[in-house]
Nucleic acid binder design. Structure first.
Lengths: 155, 155
DNA sequence: ACAACTCATTCACCTACTTAGTTACTCACC
DNA sequence: GGTGAGTAACTAAGTAGGTGAATGAGTTGT
């Protein structure tokens, strides 16, 4: 859990100050992939499949959109849905108005599992967030915005 | 870039408040994988290879430790080093004191590339961080710590 | 001295991706 | 109301990059 830390030794040589906020920020930047990896191994799914379930828990979508969201080919997303379907996590349903399309829908059991794993996490993050005063929130927003801008600039 | 957002609709239904800080936090949580994916496609390397380079830019390590850090088998890490070596990004050197070991060392050109891509990013993140007052930093640290604790609890 | 461990590697196998091509459907337009 | 362009889902064949198991070489504790 210490990726992107190559430049950490630059800090050690004085390029910048190694503050606690900076260290924690780096850790937070890796949280999504960390949680996803953990969830994947806990459920016996691949990370890609977990990612698909995350999107599907928002709303039903088709294989084509899954492909766009996960940045894979539609051939791959067909396979992802195949595997999730075989494990009983999703169902394919014909789209009401467009007969080319398939809607991929989470099954109840899968929805329960997703919510039980991620719901608690978001709830407690939301608690921390809710404890911020308005002035504090401004500070946090400025900090996070800065981090995002910096990361996007590297792209 | 909107993963783990399955539970977002719970928020819409009133389970919690959808604040700006919360939205930004979710975005920051995905930054590491986002940056890595971008870097990988920009350099023609796999994400795993990029991750290995990130670690190698800190200090030379052997294939066995690469395997531990990236959570793959040593068979895989041998292949990772093979590919990085073939592309001229690393060199294998015999370890001074332990003749079982190989030290994998970044080449100068690879080091320059890593620093040019990630150095700028960390520099501008550090700038944002440096602009915090002591009181503000306390707020940010509390917020980030809370997020990390919550995420770890989900594990 | 030797048993137990570690490191790097190879091998056979497998999973999950890719590209290319097919079929079915929708929609805008003349 | 047919036609052309575009999109959805899928199949087929090939490939990248992972796995577990086995091996040879070197190290360490007792």
């Amino acid at each position: 859990m210490n990726e992107l830390s190559d430049v950490a030794d630059l800090a050690a040589r004085g390029a910048w100050k190694q503050t606690e906020s900076l260290t924690l920020l780096r850790e937070v930047m890796g949280l999504e992939s960390g949680v996803r990896a953990h969830l994947a191994s806990a459920t016996g799914l691949s990370e890609t499949e977990v990612q698909a379930l995350e999107h599907l828990s928002r709303r039903p979508i088709g294989p084509a959109e899954i492909a766009r969201l996960l940045d894979v080919s539609t051939a791959a997303s067909t396979g992802i849905v195949d595997r999730l379907e075989a494990k009983g996590h999703v169902e394919r349903r014909p789209h009401g108005r467009d007969r080319r399309r398939t809607e991929v829908v989470l099954t109840d059991s899968a929805r329960r599992e997703v919510v039980s794993h991620l719901g608690a996490m978001f709830r407690s993050i939301a608690e921390v967030d809710a404890s911020l005063t308005e002035e504090e929130r401004v500070v946090v927003v400025r900090f996070l915005r800065g981090a995002i801008t910096a990361a996007e600039a590297a792209s």
